[in-house]
Design a protein around this nucleic acid. Structure first.
Lengths: 146, 146
DNA sequence: TATTGTTATACTCTATAACTATA
DNA sequence: TATAGTTATAGAGTATAACAATA
């Protein structure tokens, strides 16, 4: 590679994800302001709603984050009365459940996120869409290609 | 919507982006460890490389972050000797350039990110790929759809 | 007046490391 | 020994607000 060559990042999947996530997160954060909650926390709440009785470790696995990070999320959601921790047969583990109030709020939050999705998609440039599309195409044929 | 209905987040674009970004970022972070630099900072470095002489504001626009956040990135890259700030005709603005050392390092970093891309794509589940693919399809027909 | 850079401050999200209790 | 949760600490990444200098 020559020193004067342009370094092309248009073809980097991680780069695309990063830029899009920055945009999407800001839009979603704005739409969730009335609920005084962040996108990441709503995501955790939804995972619990979809997996009633799951342990904190299971939640963390679903979110691809570690136990300490999961703790913070669960503490917040419990403090806000959106979920509660119950006992399980394995006394080491907690079973997580969305509260009645949490279910009511979650429906509204998901609706707000739907609107955020539309706004985010509209904010993407033509180049971003095409680049992402090409990655998805290559994924379909198998990520390694060869 | 019934109270007992499952809340489906599989169809949320922001949710997909968030989960994928978490995975991609961790893989890229790992691959960049030998360079003692993070994915976000390499991204900034590449934007400067692709836009020699750009201002900090322009860099921030490209990254979709504000000026204060851009400052931190530029300070880091300059402290590490990867870029330098030059004067411009508009004495308010700085012109950013990748240093000689920065160009040498960047080529290696981009190669590391290429490997990270492959690993990230392989780590995605079938469901994630399909869901993302469907979003991309709907984007092609126009984000607003109706 | 608007823009560029700058500084101070703070919040979110995640990580590592070490601990306790239980399996 | 391994696992679930917990706590303390820290770093990365972003934001807001206010300021100085320049356009």
């Amino acid at each position: 590679m020559n020193r004067s060559d342009k370094i092309s990042l248009d073809s980097s999947f991680g780069y695309l994800l990063r830029r899009m996530h920055v945009k999407a997160d800001r839009v979603a954060r704005k739409m969730l302001e009335p609920f005084d909650i962040t996108p990441a926390r709503v995501t955790a709440l939804i995972v619990v709603a979809n997996n009633p009785g799951c342990t904190q470790s299971a939640l963390g696995d679903a979110l691809s984050i570690n136990r300490a990070s999961t703790m913070k999320l669960v503490n917040f959601l419990e403090r806000r009365g959106l979920i509660h921790r119950d006992k399980t047969l394995d006394s080491r583990a907690n079973a997580l459940f969305v509260s009645d109030e949490g279910e009511v709020q979650l429906i509204k939050m998901v609706a707000a996120l739907k609107e955020a999705d539309i706004m985010t998609l509209e904010s993407l440039s033509e180049g971003e869409r095409n680049a992402l599309y090409e990655f998805l195409e290559s994924m379909r044929q198998g990520p390694t290609g060869s």
